[in-house]
Amino acid sequence: MDLLEGLKLKYQSVLNVVKSKGVVLSNLHVEGDKLFIKGAAPSEDIKNDVWNAIKAVNSDWSNEVMCDISVDTSLPQPTRTYTVVAGDSLWKIANQFYGNGAQYPKIIQGNPSSLKDEKSVIHPGDVLVIPD
Results as ranks from 00 to 15, higher is better:
D88E: 05
K116R: 15
Y82K: 01
P76R: 05
N52V: 00
G101I: 03
P76I: 00
S13A: 15
V30P: 09
G32F: 03
T73F: 07
L75W: 03
K21A: 11
E44P: 04
N16V: 13
S114E: 06
L15H: 02
A40C: 00
S120G: 09
K119V: 08
D68H: 10
V50S: 04
D126A: 05
P76Q: 03
E31P: 01
I46Y: 10
F36K: 07
H123T: 12
P124S: 09
E31Q: 10
Y82R: 05
I69Q: 07
A94F: 14
G99A: 06
G87Q: 12
N16P: 00
S120F: 10
K119M: 13
P124A: 07
N95S: 11
A41C: 06
L15E: 04
D88V: 13
D60V: 10
S43C: 01
Y98K: 08
S59T: 12
S113T: 14
G110E: 08
A41G: 06
K55R: 14
R80H: 05
V18N: 09
R80W: 01
D72C: 04
L128P: 01
P105A: 08
A41N: 03
D33G: 09
I107K: 10
L25W: 05
G125V: 03
V127L: 02
T83A: 00
I130E: 02
D60Q: 12
N58R: 04
G39A: 05
H29G: 12
S120Q: 10
D49Q: 11
E64N: 09
D33Y: 06
S74F: 00
S59K: 13
L35D: 04
V17M: 06
D88H: 14
Y82Q: 00
Y104A: 01
V57R: 02
K116M: 14
K55H: 10
A53P: 11
C67L: 12
L15K: 07
H29V: 09
D60T: 13
Q109S: 12
G87A: 12
N63Q: 15
